[in-house]
Design a protein around this nucleic acid. Sequence first.
DNA 1: TTCGGTAATATCGGTTTCCGATAATCAAAA
DNA 2: TTTTGATTATCGGAAACCGATATTACCGAA
Lengths: 113, 113
Amino acid sequence: MSPRTVLPLPATSFHILLALVDGPAHGYGIKRVVEERTHGRIRLAAGTLYEAMQRLSRQGLIENTEAPEEFSGSGRVRFYRITDTGEAELGDELRRLEQDVAFARTKVPAEQG
Amino acid sequence: MSPRTVLPLPATSFHILLALVDGPAHGYGIKRVVEERTHGRIRLAAGTLYEAMQRLSRQGLIENTEAPEEFSGSGRVRFYRITDTGEAELGDELRRLEQDVAFARTKVPAEQG
DNA sequence: TTCGGTAATATCGGTTTCCGATAATCAAAA
DNA sequence: TTTTGATTATCGGAAACCGATATTACCGAA
């Protein structure tokens, strides 16, 4: 099997894909979720966020889906879900990161808490 | 204590710093080491590499050091070592990556090998 | 009702980072 | 000698990131 990886996956894209594993969401929601769960560490500036999502769409890693009813009234909210390809890419990237992090930890001593 | 982190640390810089934990090295050597240990996964194109190292120097995360004798004859080889600040940054970034990877793994099932 | 804040998407200009190509220099090998 | 490998550097362009701004909509407070 040839590696299915299309591209180097930027960190921003990794976090967007990860947020979508829980189910469809819209851009602004992803921004909030990622910011919360990293305690503000990862911010996803608006420009970065929406451009990254357009990119991911173009690459077929995420795709549009219809908004749930509780959002039907409110303006032009765009919901996205992760595709099978996107899940595969996310899994691949996660495995790579795990390898790098594990190796790095053999070189860098953990600090005393 | 306020976080000492200066900047977001790009992936390339992370790998360069990591390679320097084993001791001083020159750019081309780092390129080879990283490429080997990732089995060709991370390539470090020449432009990326040397510009990243100039950046890291400017930021005080690495610094020039003299080449060992076995390199004294051979041209203009530049050796670098990681600074204390660099080690601290590397440790910080590694901790962040570990957090992200661990969280991601709770969401993404490991593939059957 | 007006005002301000939050939600939500989009785009623009500018900066940073990344990449591949090219070039220059030197040594060793063929 | 020609070639090959090692090594650093720079350049132009592409990709990614950022903050600001604009727009639209809703909601709660004044």
